[in-house]
Design a protein around this nucleic acid. Structure first.
Lengths: 346, 346
DNA sequence: CTGAAAGCGCTAACAG
DNA sequence: CTGTTAGCGCTTTCAG
């Protein structure tokens, strides 16, 4: 009844309110507030009036309206596999280190390594146009990505070497060489000859590359990979349980087991200990990636370490190169560093 | 040069494109696409034409434009303390269980328990108007929240009993009673009399409530809390190291130590073992909240368990009650359930 | 049942 | 230096 204007969709002050209070036009307010280095200058007097009004009303520009106009959201979307997996935490942190500095927001999705979720993520990023995408794709085919790219110009950076698309930047490529080096170290330095491997056996990254690294090292050393040397397990603690159980049931235990990630390695150790085995005396275990759990488990896990937070920062940096137009052209590839961290588990 | 229209801000098809292709007006397209149960009906023929055009162009409505119009984003903001803390993972998952179903997006921020970050979060939620907020506030004062609420109608649900604001829903209230029960159990069932406690000593939740629960149980049992029984430590593994080290250096070790969260409990166990102590023989340790690390550590941790994923779902549900207008009025309070899970560490 | 037209709040020419 | 104006892409009256 007392309403005068149309529906007051929100009680937030708008630029108009600020303008009215300051006695100027809304575009002047806009100019003061978005002080992009346009050579235009505003008289110190009006500027101050406006700033006062802003203060008084606690005005905050509406990002939706701004986005609609400028066609960018100040927001990137990040798809990780699983928020519960500590592997992703430093990566997300690294990304946020960067986006915080650039005043961008981060939308996080879990794919759970499910194809449908990965597709949904892509579509959501289309509908709610984000300025860039960082993803750790697992199931997405090159075609999916292709279709997406055709429909949208949003730059994408992928984590993991598996995405093979000419206009997607990729950070990764550590899986094969790092696994190779690690297994080689197991053979040459630690003297193991019967080395087992736990990984998923499907085609989803990073399983295949790590298996390849393992096989290359074994073959180069002239070691035979016995049929039961490669056991199946998901990239979780349970996967590790499962893999180790399979080894134990087979009877002829390898002397060392390389697990394709550290969660599996931990599961494997837990399972071995539960079965009354000593680690590393009866069987050594090695993992991939340094997660906090690696030093909680006893014995602490020997692992391949990458600087995950740095990788996160790098992902963001690479993405922003494109968002800001500093880089155009075909997708680039960045290989991460890694090193062995030797602890007690092998 | 070949451009006809103004700048093609994006190559995404718009509703106009669909309309043109289908030979109708864009408002008709809108009506077909946002099939809100308005009694208005569209002829099956036009509808099909439009749907075909949508399909052909792979059209996805632009959420920014829609949001500007409808004044809601289909998005909620979640502020957690720290993405690396496993405590938050099932909570975030629970929230996403709910939002996925309702087709809402989730914006995640870490506060790192830093006041400035918490304020920034609130302001960001104002600028980019989200439809609702779920937060685990640590440093924010009631005044901060008050100011925020005055400026915005966005509903807020807080995790933890510490927020005392009449229009914020709260889920929590487990800290004091659960700690009390746990310590009581330590005394009555396990027969401990010298029980230590590790927590932060500042006023930031959930420290104080847990300390209170501990003190109440001790006092009720007529047990004296010796000066060195309460040790300082952050809510991290390092905090636990630190606390346990303090106990050890003091010489007179309690027989049992309750750590205000499980990360600290793990740090404490690690430190005790490093010092050559046996857990639980020399000193028992108990934690708060069931995180995966609790069963990786040896001995596995005895803890207070809450159904964190369920709490996440509940948070979202409570929030949506308000987003959808099903609930209005003063803030409600929801107490979570908990129970003791007895494992090897005490 | 469908089209025309009016904005949501903001930015960015274009005039003055 | 500042105001006027024209949209960004969509939803939603209001006419027809």
């Amino acid at each position: 009844m007392t309403e005068k204007k149309s529906r007051p969709t929100s009680n937030l002050p708008t630029m108009q309110d600020v303008a009215k209070l300051a006695g100027v036009s809304h575009s002047t307010v806009s100019r003061v507030l978005s002080q992009n280095a346009t050579s235009i200058r505003i008289s110190e007097e009006t500027r101050q009036k406006i700033l006062d009004a802003v203060e008084q009303l606690n005005y905050q520009p509406n990002m939706i309206a701004r986005s609609l106009r400028t066609q960018h959201m100040q927001m990137i979307a990040v798809m990780i596999g699983d928020i519960s997996n500590a592997f992703y935490h430093p990566i997300v942190r690294g990304i946020q280190d960067f986006t915080d500095q650039h005043d961008y927001e981060v939308l996080i999705s879990n794919s759970d390594h499910i194809y449908e979720h990965e597709r949904r993520f892509l579509n959501a990023s289309l509908r709610r146009p984000v300025d860039g995408i960082i993803m750790a794709p697992h199931c997405l085919t090159s075609e999916d990505l292709d279709t997406f790219i055709k429909h949208s110009r949003v730059p994408i950076v992928a984590l993991g070497a598996q995405v093979d698309h000419p206009s997607i930047d990729v950070v990764g490529g550590t899986s094969e060489p790092a696994t190779y080096e690690a297994v080689k170290w197991l053979i040459e330095v630690k003297g193991h000859r019967r080395i087992g491997f736990i990984s998923t056996l499907n085609q989803m990254p990073p399983g295949p590359s790590r298996v390849r690294g393992y096989m290359r090292a074994m073959e180069e050393a002239g070691l035979t990979i016995e049929p039961n040397f490669i056991q199946q397990g998901e990239f979780t603690i349970e996967g590790g349980h499962h893999g180790m159980r399979a080894f134990i049931q087979h009877g002829k235990l390898p002397t060392a087991i390389f697990a394709a990630n550290s969660l599996m390695a931990i599961g494997a150790i837990l399972e071995a200990k539960a079965a009354g085995l000593q680690v590393p005396e009866d069987v050594g275990v090695m993992g991939f990636d340094d997660i906090p759990e690696a030093t909680i488990i006893s014995p602490p896990l020997t692992i391949v370490r990458r600087d995950l937070r740095q990788i996160g920062r790098q992902l963001a940096e690479i993405l922003f190169d494109r968002i800001e137009g500093k880089v155009t052209g075909p997708g680039r590839f960045f290989q991460s560093d890694w090193k062995l961290v030797i602890r007690g588990s092998i």
